[in-house]
Nucleic acid binder design. Structure first.
Length: 956
RNA sequence: GCUGGAGUGGCGAAAUGGUAUACGCGCCUGCCUUAGGAGCAGGUCCCUUCGGGGGUGGAGGUUCGAGUCCUCUCUCCAGCACCA
């Protein structure tokens, strides 16, 4: 006989209707009796249908919401729609549908679907970003930010599709191509609106520290902001070897360009200057009155124009360095007073720092590459330090040599304890040329005599080490030499007596040598000559005038002062471009007077409605520019000659404050209620996808900080906790996509197995508090349904009465585990604890009503429909979701089981009363067979007793 | 390349420094059945002379005791990526 399956469709329908009737999930924001808990998940874009990812996002957050409510918290668990965005507009262009109607229809569908999951969403708090009631306040907040200089206009490049004749939003560009037609996208300069998020860059980093977020989320934010501390340093320009007075800036200062560098300590090694193609000085090269200074201005101009045609992406794709020298112009290195060449190259970004860099090829990889290509000089100004720091080391002069021959390196291979594989070298003799010393020692140790010196390193390596044989610390000032074998001429090595037989001479291929030579000094020498590049590390300054010999980090401030620079901090983060040349977005609440000056629209005219008489056909302008109504509205309100702003806001603006509106969604007089915000902010926990770790989370944090500074919100950080969920993959382990045909349709699985089974399967698939990836497995979902069937079947065993002692113990353990795991979003182990409990109860002939009821309460957050149905079946009034969360102490047990280990291995266990002392435990352990056997070999030399858990004996 | 995170059965995964592989899938055996895509019972890391021995990517280390902590190393994933 097949076990009876419950009718999930009927139960779901009935329970969902009942919940709505009882209005179970409405949060009373004014209630002060219970603790408030604001549980937030990212609101969706109303794309039209719900996929399994939506279930994972909503239904699993709902589990926690339900437990909190049963635990007596006043839970706010709202939802809404991020309903402005491109798909609606694309539908308008493609099928001629009204974006508003299209969006509304989708939201209607999705509301029903979200209800079908059995979520406990409080729909009375719903916000819809595309509704005028909402975007009125998006606009109002924009005007507040504008008043305080945080929203402003400037000229900026935008993506432009030459075929469609339209501006594209960044997210419409895939791999540098237009999403719609695949044409290469160009960049165009337009005047755009920005938000001054960089003003908050530092606070956005420092305020991260106390937040209890996962370190990877914080790190992603820090990396996105990209703070770097360095200096701005002016370089004087010289023309035809003579300073040209005509070249002074507006303030009358002599011609100079400033560079930003994080390594001012390397400035003595700056052997040329590089300007970004967009740098104002480059433009000046062909503008009068400077047009005679650059001798090759046609060449420069051609390079700059070519660079500008390339998109940023193209520049980045082609990592091969290119550039042109500005002939006739030089710069003076302010540290060395040397004249150095000036280049234009697109590896320098105009938008970062000052758009100009001092190039230090010896210590910067990119500069090194460029210098190699252009044949520019490389000057080392840092001597590396290898080994480990020693106390008062004694000085020593050493030489390390690389001898190469036909792709191999000459090595001497000592026994590992004597140093392992090393390159050749020796100790320098007083007054002798190191190259000569090296050749002599190489001959003595290896017999090779016919060497030619290829390169002598500019730098010396300071190698600090402790010589155990002499019990003394040394610092070896090491000269590095690079030899090549001219011929294989070889004599008998002349070894010291104590060296004989202790090492072997071997020729080793480059790659093997680099891998096998572990000694840091020799390893540096190999890398230095065999794979030359920039040295980015620290050390002692050399070739640096009065600073030579000092620690590079320690000397930074003095060097900055010496060259007349100033310390500055730069950020990778740029100001947030919020203009979108799109229709379906929040209209930017700005109008322009006849002179073209912007004015924000006064509050009494908000919401500034999105016009409906627009032409969606891409024409190179924002669709709003085609609206007659909009223009007439502006003329009517502001007067003749005034014009509207045609751009709309990035949808990330809409979503940067929606969690504030949830607290007061219907307010017509304010964006949110101050007293409610005081009680309910910050959000206790925010659950979302890792794709929003950087932009959305950062924008929201910026918004709240800005509004905090304007005294509009009471907190400076919006979210106490942040959890990133993982991703559900297709059954094949690949990301679900229509083209792969591995998309799981939740509706059909729900129809087959029920909403509760799908919720629980998703909860069981892996930890919800980690952004992992989990493949969908229908067998697992089916198994979850069977588990629910078993719980259903268990009702036949229920008898009146209280929990028996065995039940009480099992319930107590399950309650502790389930409570803790749901709290930490570790639903998978919470369910496994329930499975253990159910198995225990199934073994019994009968199950007490108390025990079964408690099981149902533990199940209620996970399987809300079935749990409520069965709960009512027990004769309970109301809903299980109104019941209190079980609490049960694990009953005191008078016995305890102590694991006994002998010499680190588990051998057995002893059962003793709880009151047993360490001596009792050891005595009992001595009676065990295996302990007695061990004791015949030796005595107990050590005993470690962890009370109530384990006894570890060391015998022998 | 840089920065994070992670490597545990055939698979998803458990394990405050204290009995490694809980829970589930899959698989195997048996029962029940006309049947099984149902149900029930048992088994399922490897080796074994049945006493045990080995085992959490690899090599070391700390510890009475290491999946967990430390050092080195390999691999995978994610984010950033010419940011000076």
């Amino acid at each position: 006989m097949a076990r009876e399956r419950f009718d999930h469709q009927e139960i779901e329908k009935a329970q969902q209707a009942r919940w709505q009737e009882l209005d179970l999930y409405r949060a009373d924001l004014a209630d002060t009796d219970r603790d408030p808990y604001y549980l937030l998940f990212e609101f969706p874009y109303p794309s039209g249908d719900l996929h399994i990812g939506h279930w994972y996002a909503f239904a699993l957050t709902d589990i926690f919401a339900r437990m909190l409510r049963m635990q007596g918290k006043n839970v706010l668990f709202p939802m809404g729609f991020d309903s402005f965005g491109l798909p609606a507009e694309n539908a308008a262009i493609k099928y001629g549908k009204d974006p508003a109607a299209w969006t509304n229809a989708n939201m209607e569908t999705m509301r029903a679907q979200v209800r079908s999951m059995g979520t406990s969403v409080d729909w009375s708090k719903e916000v819809v970003t595309s509704s005028p009631e909402y975007y009125k306040w998006t606009q109002w907040l924009f005007t507040k930010l504008y008043d305080h200089g945080l929203a402003y206009r400037k000229n900026a490049p935008v993506k432009w599709c030459p075929k469609d004749q339209t501006v594209l939003a960044n997210e419409q560009v895939n791999d540098g191509k237009c999403e719609r037609c695949g044409t290469e996208v160009e960049e165009k300069n337009l005047t755009q609106w920005f938000m001054g998020i960089t003003k908050y860059a530092d606070r956005l980093i420092t305020d991260l520290d106390p937040l209890p977020w996962r370190e990877d989320i914080k790190d992603a934010q820090r990396a996105w902001i990209g703070k770097s501390e360095g200096a701005r340093i002016p370089f004087r320009l010289v023309f035809g070897n003579e300073e040209k007075d005509a070249w002074r800036d507006e303030d009358g200062n002599p011609s100079q360009v400033s560079v930003f560098t994080t390594r001012p300590d390397t400035i003595f090694g700056a052997t040329y200057l590089v300007l970004a193609p967009e740098h104002p000085w480059v433009r000046a090269a062909w503008d009068t009155p400077h047009d005679d200074a650059v001798l090759n201005k046609d060449e420069v101009r051609a390079y700059v124009e070519a660079a500008q045609k390339k998109t940023e992406r193209e520049r980045q794709e082609n990592k091969e360095k290119t550039g042109v020298r500005l002939e006739g112009i030089s710069a003076i290195n302010p540290a060395t007073q040397e004249e150095i060449p000036v280049y234009v190259a697109d590896y320098v970004l105009a938008s970062y720092g000052t758009g100009a860099v001092m190039a230090v090829p010896a210590h910067d990889e990119r500069d090194f590459e460029f210098a190699k290509k252009m044949n520019l000089s490389v000057r080392r100004v840092i001597d590396p330090i290898t080994g480990s720091k020693q106390e008062n080391p004694e000085d020593k002069e050493k030489i390390v040599a690389i001898v190469e021959h036909e792709g191999k390196v000459l090595t001497i291979h000592w026994r590992p304890e004597l140093g392992g594989r090393l390159t050749v070298g020796g100790t320098a003799e007083e007054g002798e040329d190191p190259a000569y010393t090296a050749m002599r020692e190489i001959a003595e140790e290896t017999g090779y005599t016919d060497l030619e010196l290829v390169e002598r390193a500019q730098e010396q390596v300071h190698h600090e080490y402790f010589a155990h044989s002499k019990n003394k610390a040394w610092v070896a000032h090491t000269t590095l030499l690079h030899f090549r074998l001219k011929s294989e001429a070889c004599e008998e090595p002349k070894l010291e007596e104590d060296e004989k037989g202790k090492f072997e001479v071997e020729w080793v291929p480059f790659a093997d040598a680099i891998r096998d030579v572990k000694d840091p000094l020799h390893s540096y020498a190999l890398a230095r000559f065999l794979t030359p590049g920039a040295y980015g590390g620290d050390g002692l300054l050399r070739n640096s005038g009065e600073f030579s010999g000092r620690d590079n980090r320690e000397a930074i401030d003095d060097i900055i002062a010496f060259v007349g620079g100033e310390k500055v901090t730069n950020y990778r983060l740029r100001d947030w471009l919020v203009s979108r040349q799109r229709y379906w977005g929040c209209p930017i609440p700005v109008v322009y007077d006849p002179e073209g000056n912007p004015h924000v629209i006064p509050a009494e005219h908000l919401p500034w409605l999105l016009p409906t008489d627009v032409d969606f056909t891409p024409s190179g302008k924002s669709p709003l520019a085609t609206s007659r109504e909009l223009q007439e509205r502006v003329t009517r309100i502001f007067g003749e000659g005034w014009t509207p702003e045609y751009d709309t806001l990035d949808t990330f603006v809409d979503s940067s404050w929606y969690f504030l509106r949830y607290l007061d969604p219907k307010d017509e007089h304010d964006f949110s209620d101050q007293s409610v915000m005081k009680r309910w902010l910050p959000v206790n926990r925010y659950s979302g996808g890792s794709e929003h770790t950087t932009m959305h989370l950062l924008y929201s944090r910026f918004f709240v900080k800005a509004l905090y500074d304007l005294a509009l919100v009471p907190v400076a950080e919006p979210f106490v906790e942040r959890f990133n969920r993982g991703l559900i993959l297709g059954p094949d382990g690949a990301k679900m996509s229509k083209s792969k045909g591995n998309v799981i349709n939740p509706d059909s699985v729900v129809k087959e197995l029920g909403a509760d089974a799908v919720r629980m399967y998703l909860a069981f698939i892996g930890p919800y508090n980690e952004p992992g990836t989990y493949p969908w497995n229908l067998d697992g979902a089916t198994a979850m349904r069977k588990f629910l069937d078993r719980i259903y079947a268990l009702k036949e065993k229920v008898i009146e009465g209280e929990a028996a002692p065995a039940e009480a113990k099992a319930l107590a353990q399950a309650t502790a585990k389930v409570s803790e795991d749901i709290e930490r979003f570790k639903y998978n182990t919470a369910i496994s604890a329930l499975m253990v409990l159910v198995r225990d109860l199934e073994k019994q002939e009968q199950v007490s009503k108390e025990a079964y009821g408690e099981l149902l309460r533990l199940l209620a957050p996970l399987a809300p429909h079935l749990a409520d149905h069965l709960w009512q079946g027990l004769g309970n009034e109301g809903s299980v979701h109104q019941a209190s969360w079980p609490s049960r102490e694990v009953p005191e047990d008078d016995g305890m089981t102590i694991v006994v280990q002998v010499n680190g291995k588990k051998r057995g266990e002893v059962v003793l009363p709880k009151t047993a002392s360490e001596e009792d435990v050891i005595a009992a352990a001595r009676g065990l067979q295996f302990v007695r056997e061990a004791l015949t070999i030796g005595a107990i030399s050590k005993a470690v007793y962890v009370p109530g858990r384990i006894l570890s004996l060391v015998i022998g």
